[in-house]
Simulated assay, not measured.
Amino acid sequence: MIAYPDALSLLIAATPRLAAEHVALEVATGRVLAADIVSPLALPGFDNAAMDGYALRMPAAGRPAGHAATVAAMHAAGDSTAAYPGAEACEIATGARLPEGFDTVVPVERCAREGDVVRLLRDETPGLNIRRAGSDVAVGEAVLHAGRRIDTAAVMLLAAVGIAQVEVMRRPRVAVITTGTELHADGPLPEGGIHDSNGPYLAASLARWGASIVARSRVPDTGGAFHAAVRAAQAADADLIVTTGAVSAGRFDFVPTALASLGARELFHKVAIRPAKPLMAARFDGGPLVVCLPGNPIAVATGYRFFVGPVLRAMAGMPPERPRRVRLVEAPPVREGLHHFQFGAWDTVDDERVARLLPAQAAYRIAPFTRADLWLTSSDTFGDHADAWPLDPADAP
């Protein structure tokens, strides 16, 4: 069996990077930037008032309490007027451009006004309550970098600097094939039948990532049906095919042989991990990458999170994901020689945030997945610490 780091290296080396495309900002949420974003303007674009109050021309020594000045005008946000020659004070609104020659804004609650005269209620020093031009973003500054997933914060920034279109990576085109004569959709089950949970899980996970699912099929345990499903995925121009089941060494585990007969080149088969040890990867020359997951639902979840997830990142030009190192409440007994993937939950011990492994985990048990906060992984054995990962690769930075 190949070790997990070696298997992942082979898989990423065989993963093609997708092309870029331009999309409108309003539909860019969730997409991955293909190039750095360089700001065409400064934020703020001009010196402006940080609060409602009075703009003053202030000497270096400041002004004492009781100082009075005549208010020349009301200066609102968006006003085009740039100067009030000879004036010492003007009323100003939050966000309004600071008029020429004015250098301080005194909050309205620290002033008393009578008619056109404003009086300071306390000593004031120069330069206060001004948002300086470029203090947030400078012209020409790289504000977002290639490989960054566009979230709502990024949308706010891009809109603020006037960028209406962004260059993003093309969405990966993915086909999903679940195998198993026993699998059925919702509705009454025949004797010996089970509901297909792997197909809906993968479809939901891939959609959350932002992939386009170009083909999805459920096939019985026959090579002919699987052949047809793979051909359909190729015809749909899939970049990646994800299969579940029929990948081990039993009588009905036909996937490795079927893929070879279709012309796929095996990258590896069987990885020293738990769960999902029978996992396989292959590649069609000039065609899609194939990741074949075992059929047990948590083996599918493991394979998606720690094999398919890294492939999707590599396709998008994103850097490798880095885990967080956490302390465990208790180290569980595990099999040596394997890379272990288990569900964990956050806990607190002596004001320290720690993690604990959830009980009763097995490749067929789905309920612990629904109670988990994170994945915990460790090579060989879990000691006092483990690597922590978000449950879904779409949540990773």
Rank of each mutant, 00 (worst) to 15 (best):
A229V: 02
Q165P: 06
P190R: 13
L25F: 10
R335K: 14
G101C: 06
H184T: 11
L18K: 04
A49E: 05
A87K: 04
S197L: 11
E114W: 02
V311H: 05
A246I: 01
P359T: 06
V176H: 00
M1C: 10
G263V: 04
W209L: 00
R274S: 14
R356P: 01
A34W: 04
I92H: 06
T179H: 08
G53H: 07
A96K: 08
A215V: 01
V329P: 03
F382Q: 03
F226D: 09
S39E: 00
V176R: 06
R171Y: 01
G287H: 07
P323Q: 04
E21T: 13
R171K: 12
G180Q: 09
P188V: 12
R322N: 09
R63I: 07
R63A: 15
H227T: 14
V108T: 10
R31L: 14
P332S: 00
S39K: 02
D373H: 14
P190C: 02
V27F: 06
T178Q: 03
R208Y: 07
L293P: 03
A204Q: 15
A60Q: 12
D186I: 07
D47L: 10
W375A: 04
L18P: 03
A24K: 10
R110Y: 11
G86D: 07
T125L: 11
L18E: 07
E141H: 08
A316S: 15
D151R: 12
A89S: 02
A211G: 03
P275T: 01
A249S: 13
T81C: 10
G86T: 09
F307K: 00
D237Y: 08
E26K: 12
T81F: 06
N198D: 01
P310S: 09
V161I: 15
D347K: 10
Y54G: 01
L183R: 09
T70K: 13
I273C: 10
G250M: 11
V139L: 12
V106C: 12
A211V: 00
A249H: 13
L18R: 00
P323F: 08
F252H: 14
P172S: 02
E109L: 12
P40M: 12
H340D: 08
T178D: 05
W346M: 06
F343S: 01
A203W: 04
R173T: 04
L10G: 04
D347L: 10
R208G: 12
A331L: 03
G66Q: 10
L8S: 02
R322V: 15
T104C: 03
G53C: 10
A28W: 08
A363F: 00
A281E: 07
A355S: 15
I37N: 08
E191Y: 11
P320W: 00
H195R: 15
A68P: 05
A314R: 13
A388I: 07
R313T: 06
T152W: 08
M169I: 07
G140D: 07
R356H: 07
S197M: 11
T348I: 14
L144M: 11
G53W: 03
A316I: 04
H22A: 13
L56V: 08
L158V: 00
I12G: 06
M318I: 00
E26P: 05
V27R: 13
N48E: 14
A142G: 08
